[in-house]
Amino acid sequence: MPALIDLRKRIRSVRNTQQITQAMKTVSTAKFKKAQRNILERRPYWHNMPDMVLDMARWAERKDHPLLMAREEKRLVALIVTSDKGLAGAFNSNLLEKTDEELANRSEKANISLILIGKKAEQFFKHRSYPVLRSYAGQIQNMTEEDLKDLSRYLMKLFVYSETDAVYAAYNEFKSILAPKITFLKLLPLEFSQTAGGMDSLPPDWDPSRVCLLESVLPLYFENQVFHCFYESAAAEQAARMMAMDNATRNADELISDLTLLMNKLRQASITTELLEIMTAVDALAKK
């Protein structure tokens, strides 16, 4: 049986922890609102651009642009987007586990190199054998659009100069506050169906020319895909942390009420014992 004083101490410490989780929840709620607004503003661009780009690519030939070249995947680069900080539930661990599995499946056929965003990814892959080309650990807060553009240029360069045969991305996509969607997809080469379909099979006109348009559109499209990975993950991270901290606060509440109940029971028991002792003593005295 724990002593009363220990219980009181424990309740106090749980209450302190609860205050912290509550504060962290408030902070992540504010950050989440900002991140959510960011992705909601950008989503129309991200979601409509494939319509145009994939349709353009459908009429193009693989040789029209280096980003369309499909090669046998002997070397591949994986861009893995996690978070810098923990306390976000299974946000990072689920993603890393899935990614590790996907990479293991491919590692027999291909040489894999990594580009890591977030401290969690760095910690996880520190003990794996994959070489890391670039690591943005502890920089998520300060990463600007310019940094992401630089990263996308770097990835395109690797691909165009045949230093890699494919670029994959693994990230958490923000689906709802309850759970993110773990996404593992191929960014390069662009995947599209060559078979003409849809509402019209009339070949389009190009102004000025197909190659010229593709040259301008494809890098922009790829850059936006990198933005997509990063910003979706940022929003999902805050949502996950918000949920985790909310759960923690509620658990603390439960724990406090359990402990209080136990403490009251103990106190009651000690009072009863003391009373009993007194009554016994009184009885004994009366009998004399």
């Binding site: 145009m52 353009m56 019209d200 009339l202 070949p203 389009p204 006109d205 190009w206 102004d207 000025p208 197909r210 348009l213 301008s216």
Partner: peptide
């Protein structure tokens, strides 16, 4: 605003990709 002047588009325009 196309590259060489304005383009007027009406419904039924043939497919076109342009700057």
């Amino acid at each position: 605003p196309g590259l060489d002047g304005y383009l007027g588009i009406l419904p039924g325009h043939r497919p076109l990709n342009t700057f």
